[in-house]
Design a binder for these strands. Sequence first.
DNA 1: TATGAATGAGTCTTCATTCAT
DNA 2: AATGAATGAAGACTCATTCAT
Lengths: 218, 218, 218, 218
Amino acid sequence: LPDEGRRSGTAGLILATGLELFAQKGYHGTSIRDIGVAMGLKPANLYEHFQSKEHLLAELVRLGHEAHHRALCTALLESLPGPLEQLKALVRAHVRLHGELAMLAVVAHTEIHVLSPELVAPAVALRQQSEALLVGVLARGQEQGLFDLPHPFVVGAAIGGMGVRVAHWYHEDLGLSIEQVADVHVELAVRMVSARPPTVPSSAAPGEEPGGERGGSR
Amino acid sequence: LPDEGRRSGTAGLILATGLELFAQKGYHGTSIRDIGVAMGLKPANLYEHFQSKEHLLAELVRLGHEAHHRALCTALLESLPGPLEQLKALVRAHVRLHGELAMLAVVAHTEIHVLSPELVAPAVALRQQSEALLVGVLARGQEQGLFDLPHPFVVGAAIGGMGVRVAHWYHEDLGLSIEQVADVHVELAVRMVSARPPTVPSSAAPGEEPGGERGGSR
Amino acid sequence: LPDEGRRSGTAGLILATGLELFAQKGYHGTSIRDIGVAMGLKPANLYEHFQSKEHLLAELVRLGHEAHHRALCTALLESLPGPLEQLKALVRAHVRLHGELAMLAVVAHTEIHVLSPELVAPAVALRQQSEALLVGVLARGQEQGLFDLPHPFVVGAAIGGMGVRVAHWYHEDLGLSIEQVADVHVELAVRMVSARPPTVPSSAAPGEEPGGERGGSR
Amino acid sequence: LPDEGRRSGTAGLILATGLELFAQKGYHGTSIRDIGVAMGLKPANLYEHFQSKEHLLAELVRLGHEAHHRALCTALLESLPGPLEQLKALVRAHVRLHGELAMLAVVAHTEIHVLSPELVAPAVALRQQSEALLVGVLARGQEQGLFDLPHPFVVGAAIGGMGVRVAHWYHEDLGLSIEQVADVHVELAVRMVSARPPTVPSSAAPGEEPGGERGGSR
DNA sequence: TATGAATGAGTCTTCATTCAT
DNA sequence: AATGAATGAAGACTCATTCAT
């Protein structure tokens, strides 16, 4: 599905069909025959183009991780300087990718564990690098006193996580462009790294909740 | 795994073993034989206690959704009044559940789609109610002018989503208590619904960011 | 089902239930569990009363053959003398048994082949004796010039066969008493062994059939 | 086995092997593995040619009923006119089919009940038509005063039934050609529908039968 | 007498894969 | 590049049977 991974003819069709079915029913829930009938080809034919079912998945997982990594890197390269801008760029790219290439993102994320160590290696390498990008930005933002992170690791996981989930719930019939969704997530991410004002004037207005909040934690 | 769903003897063992394997390898990736050997029982024995593999999954999915719904309801009932406190209570409960019952949460979430309509019905009903709790709190918060939500629906999805992801990355060897993780998420959620201060020095305004950031970009 | 084979309590219930299910779905098509649920007892309980499923069948098959043999012998003993009367008695008894003990007859006939040689022995012995009764009567009838048999063996098979089939099609809702059915079969058997009159006008000779027939052809 | 149902290659082999085993051990008593080893093929291969074991049976049952119906129709078409000739033609065809295609006839008759309603439908339709042929001929024969039927329905069942049984006892090593068997059955059927001569000399009257009876009774 | 749990063998069927064509 | 047939392994599930209770 990503432009770079597009393959010609039958191989591309297999890739696209496999992606759709894997996203829908899972790797183990999809048989080589399912893919065959969905394509109008016989199962045996798949082996002209991929060594095995697992290799087909490996290719998809690799494409997904590459697309993700590429999107983040590009975002960073094109970003204005500074941790905040970079964070915004990362979040935007992260969310857009999970909205636009939702099936690929889901498959790459969900089914990565079925791959054998050899086939999974490239993907995990990319994933770690991608994660490092966000971690790095957050770290620098905090070093520079621009971010106020309750806990850098957890905040990173949360920001990444809410983006990942977009692939599961976003779809075009929602009346929302993926750009709008990305905008919101950018705003949320910014808020997440920004210290709240002392809440001096009791932003919770209706009166006087002052005390309540204190004991709120259990 | 949740106290309420604990079953006696063999049935309970099957439930626990199935949960573990389903979480690890997926429903379709786990064979009835896998469960059998992991339990030290023969596969045939499973059918004394569950009608089918699917019914076993259905029970787990149901338990997961019930535990989740129960946790949210309890949190709300015990919360101090007011949308902000309720939001905090919901997020805390949501995160704790996804940390403490991680496997159940993952299975209930990931494998719900393989269930036939009949078996899935109770779970989807509960899920909708659970979602409605958060949506309701956010809506009231905004009505009362306490929250500033860029987009209520997306914010809800984001808050829910980051909690859901906790089940995928949190584990006890992380040097973090789940309570700490919940604390952070509560703080993050509060920030997500709170308007940022006017950003007086306009930290987001491009162009005039205070120098230091420049070197941060790669 | 036959009075002599009736057993007390549970054993009798198993026998009756097994008979019904074997007749309906066949031996291999009926599981020990089917019998259990149909009886309201647990399958394990069957083994208190029968060594195995096969022994249950063997008992039924034996009962069936015994009842049949007994019916034929009694008929012969109570018959007026003479091959014709004896034939009539045999046919009547044969048909009555297959109507009144239809399920037992069907099972004893149909499922006898699944029994191991040891268990089947008593039944085959009886069957041969029963067949011999009819064969003997036919032979004597022919010797004495009372019967005109196109082919003794085939006629015997035919007379026996039409009676056997009664067990498959007769049931009480048919508006026919089994006695009526037996009457008809007796009459048919008598005709089967009786030479036709010289067919004076030669009704079978092609070409000269008496008019009326012509319109009958389609 | 009937010429019309013969299939090429493997499918035909499966059909033939299945027929043999079903006839011998019954549908439920025959496993897909039995068929496989009898054919020298692996069980899985059967599913290349038939959807399921039940579909294989359904095909056999259908073939059997078609062959039977075809045989009866052809017989009627080629018959001389008139109920008596038609009866003779029907009986001859009926018997020949049950002798020549014995296994098919037995399976089609015995195992039809295991088929699901959908799969059984074509066969029952044919069966009803076949029965109607005989019933029709008998009815016309009686209307025209050619037949003397003690009870039309029962006579039909008896004539049909004795033919059906041929499939169970006839085999070539018997020293009888199937044609001979058919001849006998034709003669028997004719006798069955023909009024006995008034038995003027009272052949059944006890007492005055010519001698033989004396020693005949046991 | 009755039963719940347990089990090894066996059920039908689907799987991914190969190979000759 | 494509396919129909073939296959060994594995899939979920059922079977008749046992045994402690």
